[in-house]
Design a protein around this nucleic acid. Structure first.
Lengths: 286, 286
DNA sequence: AAGTGGTCTAGACCACTTT
DNA sequence: AAGTGGTCTAGACCACTTC
């Protein structure tokens, strides 16, 4: 083994100097290069199908398993790339590529010098990830949330279909109004699988201050990671007009969302009616 | 500005010494250790600012220049990664990372075994990239386009602001109706910079069969690469109701789009009114 | 000084397409 | 067989954060 030695001489701003002697190995030769077996990929994912899948995709799946099982919890850091490489018996570069994709999907967040962290809905950064309604003025706004109703009921056919449940299975139904700067703007109906949200109550939801998806993540072990929205134009009927404080027959955006957790499992249906006099739905096309 | 200076004194294996002076202000220190000269990054981008930029970002900018100048034309293949690496004096991996980002931004398309191609709007694939209105039924639909009006006028203040022009500068104004399966569904107003679209006529636009952005790309050298949309709810007034064949005061989606070409230059403003009885605006959140 | 992610290189081999 | 992009490795060094 060959080493190189070098001295770092720091010239500090106050004129003083510091000397540091370092030595570093120049190269590393594995002692038994020919004796090591190549990685047995099938051992990594024992039940893997015979269909080809790149190593980094398998690593990605392994990492996702640990996220899904909350072995690595939202907000916490995951092991370093080098550590994971050692654990999974692959190079750091391969782990890196797996993490790259997970970061692109907003499941992980990289922070240079600090580590890689599990994304969480308890963050200012992620506040507008699922809410695309923006104010005409750039002013920050005061948000008020009011739960109008929360009850358990048997899933209507349409909701059951979207949640991949049997019609009649238990669901939690929530109706709420969001106001920005005291102006009622969003009226939302939500349906959640009853089995996952057994202990959700109107009180708990009302008193909770942070983002709703944060509550779901922390207290119900359900992380929303993706959603699709279908947008239509609608007219306010009598009830809606009253709750939103607009004229009857006013035009509204009708936004129907289905949210998914790990494994593309749908876990929320949400139908929102948006007043767009002072706000607009923002979308980026690329 | 305050920064720290330090000297590294290398004691090499053969007994010789090398001194390297470093300071915070310098982001790149040529190393004499190996004896080989590293690439002179400033030579790659002669007018580069002193701000640090990774090599692959510089390569990305160089590739984008060639796309913008139509040196590599839409639909054609660009040189291979190895070839580009040689040309730019960097490794294939660095070129690869640059192309990765351009592919993620839909400017390039990779095809394994064949090469990397410049994206074009003349493709089935890209047809729904900028049109997010989907039919309730999954059936493929017959699309009819009818140009209602095309004229040149002085840019209204609002349009000029969005296109970053002076109010009163020449713009091309187009009004058209799109029908799906004979049902009028979209009424659009478009504004384009007059200087870029000098030779655009109603006849040319009417007789053209492919996607409009394909025409712009091929005949006017203007490639749309990104757009933002702001969506609101609106009511059909008399004229609109007649053109779309709906009741007066019917609710409609109002979609205001600004499209950008290279260098984030806005080159189109479009205001669309969508009938959403048989269609919906589709959006993915992640 | 140690540890993390970020960049860059060089080389090997694989999968896909075309000649 | 040759050429392209796709995967994987190993190692070097840089930038940033923390101790």
């Amino acid at each position: 083994m060959s080493y190189i030695r070098y001295i770092i001489t720091y010239l500090l701003l106050d004129g003083s100097m510091i000397f540091v002697v370092k030595s570093k190995a120049m190269s590393f030769i594995p002692s038994n290069l020919s004796g090591t077996d190549p990685v047995d990929q099938s051992a990594i994912v024992p039940g893997a199908s015979p269909t080809f899948s790149p190593l980094y995709q398998q690593i990605k799946a392994l990492i996702m398993q640990r996220l899904q099982s909350f072995e690595w919890r939202p907000g916490e850091s995951i092991p370093s790339e080098v550590e994971l490489g050692g654990r999974f018996k692959v190079s750091q570069g391969t782990v890196r590529k797996a993490i790259d994709e997970l970061a692109a999907e907003n499941l992980l967040v990289r922070r240079q010098g600090k580590g890689t962290f599990v994304a969480t809905h308890h963050e200012a950064r992620s506040k507008f990830r699922f809410l695309r309604l923006m104010p005409d003025s750039d002013q920050p706004q005061i948000t008020d949330k009011k739960i109008v109703e929360l009850k358990r009921l048997r899933a209507p056919a349409e909701i059951a279909r979207l949640l991949v449940m049997k019609a009649g299975d238990s669901v939690v139904y929530v109706k709420r109004v969001l106001a920005f700067d005291r102006v009622p703007t969003i009226l939302e109906d939500l349906w959640l699988p009853g089995a996952l949200f057994k202990t959700l109550t109107l009180e708990r939801l009302s008193e909770y201050k942070g983002p709703m998806y944060g509550l779901f993540e922390t207290e119900f072990g359900t992380r929303m990671i993706r959603a699709t929205e279908q947008i239509r134009a609608a007219s306010a009927d009598g009830d809606v007009a009253e709750l939103l404080g607009v004229e009857k027959s006013s035009p509204l955006l009708c936004v129907e969302r289905v949210s998914f957790t790990y494994g593309d499992k749908p876990v929320e249906v949400r139908r929102g009616l948006y007043v767009t006099n002072l706000h607009y739905y923002q979308n980026e096309l690329s």
